[in-house]
C-alpha cells in the first residue's frame, strides 16, 4: 500500500520530468495539473507508468467551454494503490481545438473522448472511431458549447411556462 502524494509533491515530480511549463494546484485534496497541449499524452502516460503515481484508473475525460478563453479538456486520474487523484487539464484555443487521444492508455477514454467530441467539437487526434456516441447521427452542431442555440428557448425564454402563468400569456 502506497501513500497519497500531495499536490506539491505531484508538482515537483511533474516539473522535474517535463520542465517548468506545468502548473499544479491543490483543489480540495486533488492535484490539478495544467499542462501544455504537446505534453498531454506524455504526462498521462507518465502518471500511469511511474510507480510513485501509479494512476491505474481514469475516472473521466470531459470538456469545458470557457467562451473567449477557448476550451479546456480535463482528464481525472486516480490511483487505487496510493489513493491520490490527479486531474490533468489542457487549455485549447477556440479556433483550433485539437488534442492527442489517450484511448490506448486508458480504455475508458475511448467513449469519453467520443462524448467530448460530439458535445464540444474538440478533435482527438488518433482516435480509432471518431463518431457520435450519445447523440442521434443526423444531429448538427455541438450542444454543450455556450453559443449553441436552444430552439425552445428562442420561442420562450428560460424557465419556460411556470404553473399558473400559462393563462396570462395566451
Amino acid at each position: 500500500m502506497g501513500r497519497p502524494l500531495s499536490a506539491e509533491d505531484v508538482g515537483t515530480r511533474l516539473r522535474a520530468r517535463f520542465g517548468d511549463g506545468i502548473e499544479v494546484t491543490d483543489s480540495f485534496g486533488h492535484a490539478v495539473a495544467v499542462v501544455p497541449r504537446e505534453a498531454y499524452r506524455d504526462v498521462v502516460r507518465f502518471l500511469r507508468d511511474e510507480p510513485d503515481f501509479a494512476c491505474d484508473y481514469c475516472d473521466f475525460t470531459a470538456g469545458v467551454d470557457r467562451g473567449p478563453g477557448g476550451f479546456e479538456v480535463s482528464t481525472h486520474l486516480h490511483s487505487t494503490t496510493h489513493h491520490h487523484n490527479v486531474r490533468v487539464k489542457v487549455r485549447l484555443p477556440a479556433d483550433d481545438p485539437v488534442l492527442d487521444s489517450v484511448h490506448d492508455l486508458y480504455a475508458t477514454c475511448d467513449w469519453h473522448e467520443r462524448e467530448t467530441m460530439e458535445m464540444f467539437g474538440i478533435r482527438f487526434e488518433g482516435h480509432p472511431r471518431p463518431v457520435k456516441l450519445l447523440l442521434a447521427e443526423p444531429f448538427e452542431g455541438y450542444p454543450l458549447r455556450k453559443d449553441f442555440p436552444l430552439m425552445s428557448r428562442e420561442v420562450k425564454p428560460w424557465p419556460g411556462a411556470v404553473e399558473g402563468e400559462e393563462d396570462e400569456d395566451e
Binding site: F139, L150, S152
Partner: peptide, 9 residues
C-alpha cells in the same frame, strides 16, 4: 427537459 437539445418533446 422542455428546452433540451436531445429530448423528444
Amino acid at each position: 427537459y422542455w428546452d433540451s437539445y436531445s429530448v423528444t418533446k
